[in-house]
Simulated scan of single mutants.
Amino acid sequence: MKRSEALVLTVGADPVVVEGRLAGGELECPCCGGMLARWGWGRVRVLRGGRGPVRVRPRRARCRGCGMSHVLLPVFVLARRVDLAEVIGAALAAKAAGAGARTIAAAWGRPVDTVRGWLRRFSSRAEAVRVFFTALLVEVAVDPVPPAQTASLFADAVAAVAGASVAAASRWEHVGEAPPWLVAVAASGGRLLAPGWP
């Protein structure tokens, strides 16, 4: 990766808390472990949430050690997606429950091709996602119980995401307040539907 390319780093949803963590030197560079410092802002993006548009202006940070720049995306945003994680996650869960792309698109008021794109991307890596989130579940659960096999690999992957979220909530109380798809965004670094992940 070239030095000029910024990496995406998932951070909390509250910008005031993120600013405080940056100012206090609490955010670590995932490349070298150095301290991240403020380095301007990304452009304002208007994203589509379940209840209407959401304006996001991502903070940018630069590592004081290696010089790598990072775009700090809030945990409710997936990298390179215009829809929030809550919408995409609900669509994936609906597909796992047997709904088709047209039904999901109509329910969320999204173009059918957009929904098909989410479903295809997730489906193309369903086994890798299932393995990743099952391993996360086993790693963090107090008494791990991997999800039972379902009717499809797609549904197995969605069940693994939900199981990992429950496991994280059982280990860390504050995670219990977060919907499963936000846990999935945090665990995937915002790259759940990005090429090359996991």
Results as ranks from 00 to 15, higher is better:
W108V: 09
R125G: 11
A94D: 09
P147F: 07
V82S: 02
A90P: 08
P146Y: 06
A96S: 14
A162R: 13
E139L: 09
F154T: 10
V87N: 10
D143R: 07
V142K: 05
F132W: 10
A94S: 12
V131K: 13
V115I: 15
R125D: 05
E127I: 14
G109D: 00
A160P: 15
A157G: 03
L136F: 08
L153C: 06
L119T: 03
A160R: 04
A94E: 14
A159H: 02
W108M: 15
A128P: 04
I104E: 01
A162I: 12
F132Q: 02
I88T: 04
A96R: 03
A128D: 08
D113W: 07
T150M: 02
T150L: 03
D156C: 00
V142P: 10
F133K: 04
R80P: 00
P147M: 02
A101H: 04
Q149T: 10
R116D: 03
P146F: 08
T150I: 01
F154D: 13
P144D: 12
A106P: 04
A157F: 14
R110F: 06
R120V: 08
L137C: 13
L153R: 07
G109E: 02
R102A: 11
V161P: 03
G100M: 09
K95M: 09
F132C: 03
G117D: 04
T134L: 04
A151L: 08
I104T: 03
E86K: 08
G89S: 12
V129W: 03
P111A: 01
A105C: 14
R110A: 08
L119H: 02
G100E: 00
E139H: 08
R80N: 04
A126W: 01
G98N: 15
E86H: 15
G98D: 05
V161A: 14
F132A: 06
A101K: 03
G89L: 15
A105I: 01
L84C: 02
A105F: 04
R102T: 09
L136E: 13
